[in-house]
Design a protein around this nucleic acid. Structure first.
Lengths: 242, 242
DNA sequence: TCCAGTTCGTAACATATGATACCGAAGTGA
DNA sequence: TCACTTCGGTATCATATGTTACGAACTGGA
């Protein structure tokens, strides 16, 4: 479903709703509500909704408008000719999608964007974003900061990809979850297949490594439940990467 | 050698020289010369020189000033605990270094920066860059465009790292050189060891793969000389990644 | 409750790549 | 010219991970 915003009564209601979403969105949250509404009224935006599982954008597509995830969740992934998927990142609304790519000379998406829940997207013209960058210093700084964080994440993924074994990557993932969940008893939010896609491995290989960690007494697990038994051993696996 | 610029006679001569370098530098070239000189006089910059082989910045260092490569060449790399090097990119002056990282909340360099020739660096305060972004739309667009290109390169590196065999990565490298040198007779600009670091492999493994390509009649080679015999076969190796 | 489809663990085998070592060739500087 | 260092090729063996397949367990809808 595609909705376009430009100065009609129904769209004014949209504008209010979108502005409310943007008030919590990285970069946009730094802008006064009036300025956000003004921006939305001045530029020709689209709203689209997508079902869970929908491929919102393909790797290689031209990226001419900033996508802002208003609701739901997406993951970005690369896939290989042979059908292997590699999950690069996951995003929860509200957030920006591919903020840096918007400004490339050859601005083709380096990843595909897949909805992992039903989502709603705001599609903003590049000119709207550029104008905000120029007039709102806090927006500019936050926008650039957002890009910087993403670049850091990508670089980290590259480093792990190059230097880390599956075991080390799994240790990293489990430690992340440990810090997120604040407990050494974890309910993992991903299926084994999805975990494998995030870690850049195959499901049987991941199972093997998890099984080895269990045999070594580092963890205890059953399906999506993992109990960390030896936190130091796990941290040691990650530390050996630095 | 460290030189600092701020409003003295000798530094005015520096300012002219630096402005001349910046006139050819991505993003800065979009700014009028007067504006560049003005910016340099208003902000407290540093100039540093480094010998070939110098590690200018370490992965994990805080990155608080924009580094601009005024002369020479650098490479950026990640290294592993065990001493393996992975070359992420190479840059020739004049160019920006890590333009996105400057704005991160936790702005730590994801790579080390090594001079591969004697170099000269301009170190600009973040505020100087932000001010230019606000006042010079063309600078902002070009700066963001530069970041976008880097992110694309990094994403490509990640994709190749995840999905491509050494053979496919080598084919990609040779095709790049073919397009750069405009000939199927290549004089490779890197030693085998450095090639291996760029491709994310070990030297013996790279030698093996090159030898296999030669046996298959795809290339003919001796040391840094490579002749592409079957361009289609080489291109086919790369195409199978898309 | 039953059944079809999906997920997961595991095993066996295959493959790509790394580690190590050695040797000859090439380059460098005194 | 010679000694030393670096570079590059090659071989052998080791290791991590992928591929394929199968059976058990789980899930959701009729």
């Amino acid at each position: 479903m595609l909705r376009t915003g430009q100065n009609s009564g129904k769209e004014l209601a949209d504008t209010e709703r979108i502005a409310a979403h943007l008030a919590c969105c990285p970069a946009f949250e730094a802008v006064a509500p009036d300025t956000l509404r003004d921006m939305l009224q001045r530029h020709h935006y689209h709203i689209t909704s997508h079902d869970s599982g929908a491929i919102v954008a393909f790797r290689g597509d031209r990226y001419e408008r900033l996508l802002v995830l208003l609701s739901g969740e997406v993951r970005t992934e690369m896939s290989s000719y042979g059908g292997k998927q590699y999950t690069v990142a996951e995003y929860t609304a509200p957030c920006l999608l591919a903020p840096a790519i918007l400004f490339g000379k050859d601005n083709r998406l380096p990843v595909s964007v897949i909805a992992t829940r039903p989502i709603e997207l705001l599609r903003l013209p590049r000119a709207a974003v550029l104008a905000l960058c120029r007039t709102e210093e806090a927006f500019l700084a936050a926008y650039l900061g957002d890009i910087s964080t993403r670049l850091g994440v990508l670089a980290d993924k590259l480093r792990l990809s190059r230097f880390a074994t599956i075991r080390e990557r799994l240790a990293d993932y489990l430690l992340d979850q440990y810090h997120l969940q604040g407990s050494s008893t974890l309910q993992l939010p991903h299926s084994r297949r999805t975990q494998a896609e995030i870690l850049g491995a195959t499901r049987p290989a991941l199972s093997r490594v998890l099984s080895e960690l269990a045999e070594a007494g580092v963890v205890n697990y059953d399906r999506d439940y993992v109990q960390i038994l030896d936190l130091e051993a796990l941290a040691g696996l990650v530390d050996s990467l630095d």
